[in-house]
Design a protein around this nucleic acid. Structure first.
Lengths: 342, 342
DNA sequence: TGGGTGGGTCAAAGCGCTTTGGGTTGGGCT
DNA sequence: AGCCCAACCCAAAGCGCTTTGACCCACCCA
């Protein structure tokens, strides 16, 4: 059943039917009712392909998800981010198109999505500092929102981000207050922007006490359980072992816990741990009582906000860039305690 | 730059240019070269919207991902499944459209995707036993591949699945050989088909020794760390506590480990654990030495295979249903050992 | 020499919508 | 009575491709 058929069936022109369905004012309320009823009765649904061609809009947005070709790792936060964003899209009649693309091919992907007209806008994930994609997208004129920020980018652009620097600064201060002085930072890959900011917050907090980070207690890697474990083993093997850890993700935190307990130590008593908790739906930080003390910010909310911003940008392409900075909250869990007095 | 412009620029008709670009034989090799060169030079890319309308194909496939509205949980295996599938799609010029949809709205989503013509086929995730979606899709005539199977479905359909029954049967046998008799099953939600099969394998293995599962050691829940922890606490609190666990996922296994260690026990010595390992990229089972003894089957491979099958079905809609049953391998890790003799 | 034959090209008709630019009423106003 | 305007509705022209059917021009063979 297509528009034309429905129109003849109703004894109206396609024009009128189209207008009735799309809520244009110049059609009589009575006939609109008749059209709507007819459409329902015949189970009519407009063909999306035709709408897209006729309107010149894709009614779709793209998420280009980088795939680390070496490790083959897809960042686990994407599923929740996408769940949040997807909600917004479907509420607004947009499709979500996912391209999982090898790191190095991202630029081409954007070019392609744009020039073939498959999307009206994109979300940029995991920006690096001074990320080249920002310029590419700006030059292409493809609306985009960055999840995160790109330091040193001289251009202004739309972004949604968590205050990562502040979160790690506060977490570090909290550990310092507890008396910890040997704090290990188990960071994400530091070519990604948010990891840089987190490290900055960490360093800054140490600096207020005149401390500086011990390179032997710093690590930067994919945010997995095993990498957390590895980093923790190293920091515990240190001649002056860490008494506290600050980790970039829940999974790393779990790896750290495994290392601690593998040593016969007890997390929260012998060694303290704070994690950054993205509040993933399938990886909750405990039930009523949080397992880990954590700085928390829901990545699903970030997905929701990014999607809303993107749709807004698509609707008003000329508007000035928008920014949204989310604050992480510090959640007290069972993984922190006063530094052991030796 | 569109086809018509390119054609006039080359002094050819749109027809010829189109044919040259699409590799039709009736165009002179020399002019084809000329056209290709021209397209490259002017950076021409055909408009996907127009192609879709003209050909009547969507050149896109849909993944409808169920969202448990109560728990808001997105199954973490999706990201890897999708990574595998996405690879296949992009290699074949297909877009991947993701809809994250509340459990109850899935059927409408399929109807919509179909009648609006946004996709040429779909992947069905997490089938329940006798899943109604299968009939809906069959009746709609929308090509589909099920990831998993739906017991008791009287219809035949395309599927890719792991031999879940066999995997859990072997894992259980392995524990039995080690002398364990009090084995707790920490299963996924048992209205989802694969969980039913896993339980069947478990029960079957017990039965060969004349044993039957102790209801106090059975649990079925979302496959999260916390649910694993909860289930393990219960099984360890049992008057005759479990000496071994069989868990449906890595995350549950991690929760079990936390419970074991929280008790001051040692995994692999005091209590044994076997997990089902989906081989998620961001949740590897250790590095060189596996942490957990596990039955392993890569969900990314399953994604790849499902996508290939779906494209095949789209290309040959009349072909008989295809099936692909993957076997999980049993990996020996550090989490199992002989049953403690008391 | 003339009627095939086939390689190469093109005009035009879709695909199923939206949207522009009228047309046709009927009623109110002077 | 004549004019104008608002309210409705419609025909037709796109949107940028694909594809059908026809055409033209060698070239070959009888």
């Amino acid at each position: 059943m297509n528009l034309k058929e429905l129109a003849t069936k109703l004894g109206l022109s396609p024009t009128t039917v189209s207008r009735a369905l799309n809520g244009y004012p110049e059609v009589n309320e009575a006939t609109r009712e008749r059209v709507l009823a007819g459409a329902r009765r015949h189970n009519y649904r407009p063909n999306a392909r035709a709408i897209r061609l006729a309107t010149g809009r894709a009614l779709a947005v793209g998420h280009v998800i980088p795939l680390n070709t070496r490790t083959e790792i897809v960042n686990p936060v994407f599923s929740d981010f996408i769940a949040g964003a997807g909600e917004v899209y479907s509420r607004n009649g947009y499709d979500m198109i996912l391209s999982i693309v090898a790191d190095e091919a991202e630029e081409t992907t954007y070019r392609d999505l744009m020039s073939r007209g498959t999307v009206d806008g994109v979300i940029v994930h995991a920006p690096k500092s001074n990320d080249p994609r920002i310029k590419v997208l700006r030059d292409l004129g493809l609306p985009f929102v960055v999840h995160g920020r790109s330091s040193d980018s001289e251009l202004d652009y739309n972004w949604v981000d968590v205050n990562n620097r502040r979160a790690f600064q506060r977490a570090t201060e909290f550990l310092l207050h507890l008396g910890h002085r040997r704090i290990a930072l188990v960071n994400g890959l530091e070519h990604v922007d948010f990891a840089i900011r987190r490290r900055a917050g960490f360093t800054e907090a140490l600096a207020t006490l005149g401390l500086s980070p011990d390179p032997g207690l710093l690590s930067s890697d994919e945010m997995t359980e095993t990498s957390g474990h590895r980093a923790a083993m190293r920091a515990l093997d240190h001649p002056q072992p860490a008494t506290a850890f600050l980790a970039a993700s829940m999974l790393q935190g779990m790896g750290i816990r495994r290392a601690i307990e593998g040593r016969g130590l007890r997390m929260g008593r012998d060694v303290s741990v704070i994690i950054f908790d993205d509040d993933l739906s399938y990886l909750r930080n405990g039930e009523d009582v949080p397992i880990f003390t954590a700085t928390r910010s829901s990545v699903r909310d970030a997905g929701r906000l990014s999607a809303e911003m993107l749709l807004d940008v698509i609707a008003n392409p000329a508007a000035p860039p928008q920014h949204r900075l989310l604050e992480a909250e510090l959640i007290l869990g069972q993984s922190t305690g006063p530094a052991p007095s030796h």
